[in-house]
Structures are given as structure tokens and as C-alpha cells.
Design a protein around this nucleic acid. Structure first.
Length: 473
DNA sequence: TACCGTCCCGGTATACGCAT
DNA sequence: ATGCGTATACCGGGACGGTA
């Protein structure tokens, strides 16, 4: 039984019940979203038709936790391939209906009138969109043309590929089908021409105040997550990255909780920028492609020690072994030893070791090493034989010879060790958490929140008393 | 390919010695 | 008795080598 978190978005101020003015910018954004939804629904249908969806995974019993009453869905409604394809087809129809509603709303917002006999091409295009919208308005599952009064005439619309001529009198009461417009591609052409016309009208009428950057509204009834005190359990309201950091801030104080493996992806996300800033005085910038858990071959075994991250400067003259600690007490001399031994051995030796490790007899492990080899090759530190991928995945015959044919470039970077630590240590090349936070906080809301946690982690040791509960001095 | 024993990792838990 | 620092054992997930 799963409790999914919905993160889907529903467009427009209008759809969330606000009656305040919807600007044309808003309406055009909704058009974009609606047509993206058509694209998604079509891709989903193709995916389903290929049989790539596993009903055992999709069609489980699910309960959605909602503030105003939970929703339970049983397993079984989508257990057959045909059920899934039928549902995906309906999703395409619904998305197309949504696209008609959104496009009509944009025309309405622009204040363009409807008139099938207007000499103005934009007005006739707007009228066509309205007629499609009306067809869906009278039945999403079975859209029908409904043509009344002044609209009962021939409507001609100029389009770049070919003019469209519709006898609305004849279409009245008939089932709507995109074939009548000339196919779905024509509908996308109608969208494109509408956007051009509406954008022009918007620039003419630009005296209206611009809308604020659009925030995609979230259905108010849906499970949300709200941040809470770091020690408290978060009340579940709106999904929010801040809650993730609240959890880390709080949980790192609990027994047996290891922060580093949980937070290393966040460090990895910002590590290239942090390295760039740290290395800026030397004029060095790094390739943003990092390799985590970079293996460093041991002297007398085929095993490896690991550097937390491996980075290379853009000019490929310097490589960096980055060691991350979230707790100063975790610094170990043995680790310093193998890192500095790697520096002394040099890049060629490290790469040769990786090549040897990739020749593991375990085929599953070999596949993982292949991904490592590809990452190293992407950093231009290895040249892989073209047939290597086939040898790894299809025919393992000759795979060891193939790995032996991996070549190294003649010029290789030197190696340095950089530590990322809560506090800098004298004699070590360090980025302390304050320095890391200064970089991170420049990257939007998530960065700001991560920076706050970094400062928390460096100021308060795991297990320490919280400052706000300590007696005033 | 499966299985088993061993090692590695970051971090925690515990034992120990020493100072107060 | 208590606090502190250091060394070492341990944890769980994963990698690795050897064997059948």
C-alpha cells in the first residue's frame, strides 16, 4: 500500500477559483502547458502501446492521504495491457480537450471578438478555436459540433500550409473529429498561428500591467508538506525541499544516523561551483562532470579505496580528489595516507588501476565499471574501443582484450586533494562549510535552504543541545 | 551464475587511560 | 566520580575474489 505524493500542477488563476484578472501572459502560459500535456499524453500512449509499463508496478492498491479525507484506489482496474492502453487513449482525448479550452481562453483574454464572416483573419481564426472549444464543452468524451445563429455559414481561415474551409452548417450536431480540421497537425498549426496573433495583440496593448512570474497552482486538496522545527516531525502539507533539509537537520542528531551518505548528492550538485570559487585565484575552472566514489587502486590487491568525488579542470591540467566530511571527528590518518599516495602515484597509475578493476570476472560489476570508464572517457582521460559496449552487454567473448585496448592520452593532469569540511584544517587544502554555503546560497530557494543547513551542521555538533533550548547566559 | 567469506566505507558505540 | 581524548570494534550496504 503506497501513499503517493502528488506534485502535479494545474494551470491558471482562473482554474483555482480566483476571479481576479487573468492576464494574456498567464493565458498563453496555460496554452503552452496544455499543449505540453497533449505531447505528454501522446508519448505516454506510445509508451503503453510498446508494453513498457508493468501492470504489477502501476496497478497497486493505493491510498492518497488528503486533509479532507483519504482516497483509496483498489488494484485491478489497470491490470491488463488493453486497460492501460484504453486509459492512455482517454488521457490523450482529455488533453486535447484541455488544449481547446486553454487556447479559447487565451483569445477571450485578449478581448478578440468572434465573427465567422469578419474580414479580419485573426477574428476568423479565433472563431474557429471557439467552435472547437464549444464542441468539447458539450461532451468531453463525445465532442460534437454545435453551430447556432450567425455561425451557421462557411468559415474560412488562412493557415501557412493551406487555407482551411469549414461548412459549419453541415457540421452542426456531427461528432467532432480532428480529421475535419485536416488532422492533429493542423490543430498544432492553429495553435502556432493563434500564439503569433495573440502575442502581436499583446504588444500593441502593452499598457496593461504585466503579471507576476507565474506560479503553477497546486490542487488545494492535495497532500502537502510544510516545514517545521528541525526537531519536530513535519506536518504533511505541500511538497517542499525545505522539509528534506529539516529532516536532515533533525535526524543527524539521532543515534546511528549517518549524514554524509544522505547529503552527498546535494554536495555533488553544487560541488563544481564550489570548486570553481575555491580555485578562482589560480584561474582554474572545473568540468562540471563529477565522478563520485572514484576508486583508487591499492598497492598489493585488486581492491580499491575511494575518493568521494573526482573532478578535472577544464584545461585537463589538474585533477582533484575531493574528500567530504560532515563530521570533523571522521578525519582518519589512513584515509589521508591513501589519498596522498594516489597523488604521488599519478594519474596514469590510477587510470591503469581502474582499467584492471574493470576486468572483474563478475559481469554485473563489469557493467558498472563500464559506466565508470565512459565517465572517465567523457572527461577525455581515456579512449575506449568502439566495440567495448557490445563486448560488455552482448558478447563477453574477448571482453578482457577489449578492456586492455583502452588507451590513455599522452598528457594527463596532475592530482591534488581538496577537503570539504565543517571547519578548515591548517595544512590542508580545504573548503569549509561556510565557503560552500556562500556558493550554494546563490542558487535559488533550494540553495538558500541548503546553505542554512550547512551553517547549522558546522555550528552545532551532532547530539549537541539546540541553542534555542540552552539557558540564556 | 550462485554462493560464501572478506574487505571497504562513513559513521557510531564502547573501552580505556589520564586529568581534574 | 566525572569529563575528555584516543583507539578500536562494530554497523549495514556494497564490492570483490575464490570456488563449485
Amino acid at each position: 500500500m503506497a501513499a503517493p505524493r502528488w506534485s502535479q500542477c494545474a494551470p491558471t488563476a482562473g482554474s483555482t477559483g480566483e476571479l481576479s484578472a487573468v492576464t494574456l501572459d498567464d493565458a498563453l502560459t496555460d496554452v503552452r502547458i496544455a499543449f505540453l500535456q497533449v505531447e505528454f499524453a501522446i508519448k505516454l500512449l506510445s509508451y503503453c502501446e510498446q508494453g513498457d509499463i508493468d501492470p504489477a508496478v502501476l496497478d497497486t492498491h493505493q491510498v492518497v492521504l488528503l486533509e479532507q479525507g483519504n482516497l483509496g484506489f483498489p488494484a485491478g482496474n489497470f491490470s491488463a495491457r488493453e486497460d492501460i492502453i484504453r486509459a492512455a487513449s482517454v488521457a490523450v482525448s482529455l488533453a486535447l480537450a484541455g488544449s481547446a479550452l486553454a487556447l479559447d481562453k487565451a483569445w477571450e483574454t485578449a478581448g478578440i471578438p468572434r465573427d465567422p464572416s469578419s474580414p479580419d483573419g485573426a477574428v476568423r481564426l479565433r472563431t474557429l478555436v471557439h467552435m472547437v472549444r464549444c464542441a468539447y464543452a458539450h461532451g468531453v468524451a463525445d465532442p460534437r459540433w454545435e453551430v447556432r445563429g450567425n455561425y451557421r455559414q462557411v468559415l474560412e481561415v488562412d493557415l501557412p500550409t493551406a487555407p482551411l474551409r469549414l461548412d459549419l452548417r453541415a457540421l452542426d450536431s456531427q461528432s467532432f473529429d480532428f480529421v475535419q480540421l485536416g488532422g492533429h497537425a493542423k490543430w498544432f498549426e492553429i495553435r502556432d498561428q493563434s500564439i503569433i496573433a495573440l502575442t502581436e495583440s499583446n504588444s500593441v496593448a502593452s499598457t496593461r500591467p504585466k503579471s507576476a512570474p507565474k506560479r503553477l497552482a497546486i490542487a488545494s486538496d492535495v497532500l502537502e508538506v510544510r516545514s517545521s522545527s528541525p526537531r519536530g516531525h513535519p506536518a504533511i502539507t505541500q511538497p517542499d525541499m525545505a522539509v528534506l533539509f529539516d529532516l536532515l537537520d533533525g535526524w543527524r542528531h539521532l543515534p546511528s544516523y549517518r549524514l554524509e551518505p544522505r547529503a552527498d548528492a546535494m554536495f555533488g550538485l553544487f560541488m563544481p561551483d564550489a570548486l570553481d570559487r575555491h580555485l578562482a585565484p589560480r584561474g582554474i575552472t572545473v568540468n562540471p562532470l563529477l565522478i563520485p566514489e572514484f576508486p583508487l587502486g591499492q598497492d598489493d590487491t585488486r581492491r580499491s579505496d575511494k575518493a568521494d568525488f573526482f573532478a578535472v579542470s577544464r584545461d585537463r591540467r589538474h585533477a582533484f580528489l575531493v574528500e567530504l566530511k560532515t563530521d570533523m571527528n571522521s578525519l582518519r590518518d589512513t584515509q589521508e595516507d591513501y589519498l596522498h599516495r594516489a597523488v604521488e602515484r599519478g594519474m596514469a597509475s590510477l587510470l591503469c588501476d581502474i582499467r584492471s578493476m574493470a576486468k572483474t570476472k563478475n559481469s554485473r560489476a563489469r557493467r558498472k565499471y563500464f559506466h565508470l570508464l565512459k565517465a572517465v572517457a567523457e572527461l577525455e582521460l581515456m579512449i575506449l574501443p568502439v566495440e567495448l559496449e557490445d563486448r560488455i552487454y552482448d558478447s563477453s567473448q574477448g571482453v578482457y582484450d577489449c578492456i586492455d585496448r583502452i588507451r590513455l592520452p599522452s598528457a594527463l593532469p596532475d592530482i591534488e586533494v581538496i577537503h570539504v569540511l565543517p571547519a578548515a584544517v591548517k595544512g590542508m587544502d580545504c573548503i569549509d562549510f561556510e565557503g560552500f554555503a556562500a556558493v550554494v546560497e546563490e542558487h535559488g530557494k533550494i540553495g538558500e535552504r541548503f546553505a542554512a543547513s550547512l551553517r547549522n551542521w558546522s555550528a552545532i555538533k551532532a547530539g549537541d543541545r539546540w541553542p534555542d533550548t540552552a539557558p540564556a547566559k
